[in-house]
Design a protein around this nucleic acid. Structure first.
Lengths: 299, 299
DNA sequence: AAAATATGGACGAACCTTTGACAAAACCGC
DNA sequence: GCGGTTTTGTCAAAGGTTCGTCCATATTTT
């Protein structure tokens, strides 16, 4: 049994709203303590959560207050797939990025989580990664190189953002029948955020993503592509940018490529291999939108 | 048998609170000396610790005082979907681990996700990590060393499990007021799964975890501990086990430790530094259950 | 003697409840 | 599009409850 306060925290509603919904629409009927304080059951919490979700989708509380939990679930399910520019809310992206950087320098995981969650909701997954995560991590990287951000702060932000994205990678990677993409970074490349973002985008548009993480040996990338009959391999190139082995590795990758498997290369240091990539028949990915289009044309 | 003062230290409650909880809610019934002073058993301490955790999660003591220890444990496991008719029953852990290994060799993310999710639900978060993830990753590591599992399969499993756990790390790390733990691995140590599991456990029992990820330079670990006023630093030691720098790094860590900050070291290769750790005043963590107890006694 | 402990009482901060009012947003008839 | 109406979240006031803390006093341990 939960008090109204803890129910508020678990549902994201305010105690005021919970009470007024009960008073006006009888959405729940919590028990009472001998002294008349409300005590909510787990079922009540689930119902309130459902009601919040449906109201957030634009329905009025008065119109849905007397629906059963089952009917509410149906509504959330049917409206879910319609991807959302829904609240083109007035979120100030640059401000949010600054806030995130502050949370990072403060090493404050709770604050950072709050900011990421908010940005994700108002920008949608692709917009979130393109116009929030990518610039955020670029700025953190720059600040780190100039010494304004310490190594531990940079590590902290990567770890947190990676976990944040990982959640959506797993949740959206559910299509067994979609074409396969292998996502990884090359040996020596430890920053896997670019690869993670690609994986999320690909999974969201129906690809079956096999995510291998950072620093995967070439023959391992090629082996997985071959035995899983991958349609594409996505490689993210970041720092260090000047590794002399990169051209050799790219060449080796292309030579070992299974039939019908396309090599995609993206990331901040892709530009300097531009010529070589097109010569090899690999595709240079400029951003996540471009990735999304390219994948669509490959499937 | 323990006096009220030592129980207070072991539970983080004040003697006043312990007495008033007994007076008002009969939460424990300690024995008495002939002269009427309270004598607490280990069971009493465990119960008081559980009660503290649950009250810190926002429930009122009056609402939970008459629950059994089992019920309290269920509540503490915030991430476990309530009700556990499945517990221990129809899940063959060893079989599930084998299934997971098969999904890993098949590089099948969807199947792997399904198996992990199922095990998580039936085992609860701590049981899941202790009796499922830990042995699973041990077995994968062994198979990799003997060549039965390829590098790409090992990478794939780490990446997937890391994302899976990362989700719960973020979701349960919500307590701003809890004591702080810095979780990381040392330079040269790239396997961060142990650190991630520690972070999840600590967050679940009300600590405020700052997760820095793998391969964090010593001065960065110390800096974060200092500026966030951490109560403890958790270091996970795994492969490579024979790195000669490890003793030096541990020593340097202890010397730079802020006041009131305890160094905790866990992981598969901890045993060989056992003597040195106790000499330095660091604590050796044998498993996640032990970690949970140690953190309780440190707060 | 000094430090801990026991008991019961008292207090204040935080929290909860009900009622009513109000402004912004959404809706509707035109 | 535009006024009038309804819906809806928020706030305030006034009074009750919960719970940790503190105090006074007596007893025990060190």
């Amino acid at each position: 049994m939960h008090t109204i306060q803890s129910v508020a925290e678990k549902t994201g509603l305010t105690p005021d709203v919970i009470r007024i919904w009960e008073r006006r629409y009888n959405v729940v009927a919590p028990e009472r303590t001998p002294s008349n304080q409300r005590l909510y059951s787990d079922d009540d919490i689930e119902r309130l959560n459902l009601l919040r979700r449906v109201t957030e989708q634009g329905r009025r509380i008065s119109a849905i207050a007397n629906l059963t939990n089952e009917e509410l679930k149906d509504i959330t399910d049917t409206l879910r797939p319609q991807s959302r520019p829904l609240t083109n809310s007035n979120l100030d992206v640059q401000q949010s990025i600054s806030d995130a950087i502050e949370a990072i320098t403060e090493l404050d995981p709770i604050q950072l989580e709050r900011i990421l969650g908010q940005a994700f909701i108002s920008l949608g997954s692709v917009g979130f990664m393109m116009s929030f995560i990518a610039p955020l991590m670029d700025q953190v990287g720059d600040l780190w190189r100039t010494g304004a951000v310490r190594t531990c702060q940079e590590h902290f932000s990567s770890a947190h953002v990676r976990s944040f994205l990982g959640r959506y990678m797993l949740e959206s990677n559910t299509d067994t029948k979609g074409p396969r993409l292998i996502a990884a970074t090359l040996p020596g490349q430890l920053h896997e955020l670019g690869a993670t973002m690609s994986a999320v985008v690909a999974a969201q548009i129906g690809w079956n993503v096999i995510y291998l993480g950072a620093a995967v040996p070439l023959e391992e990338i090629l082996f997985s592509a071959e035995c899983k009959d991958a349609r594409a391999i996505g490689i993210s190139l970041g720092y260090p940018m000047d590794d002399p082995k990169i051209p050799l590795m790219l060449e080796e990758l292309v030579q070992g490529l299974p039939k019908k498997c396309q090599l995609l290369v993206g990331g901040s240091s892709t530009a300097r291999y531009s010529g070589m990539l097109s010569r090899l028949g690999a595709l240079e990915i400029t951003d996540l939108e471009h990735l999304s289009q390219t994948l669509d044309s490959l499937r």
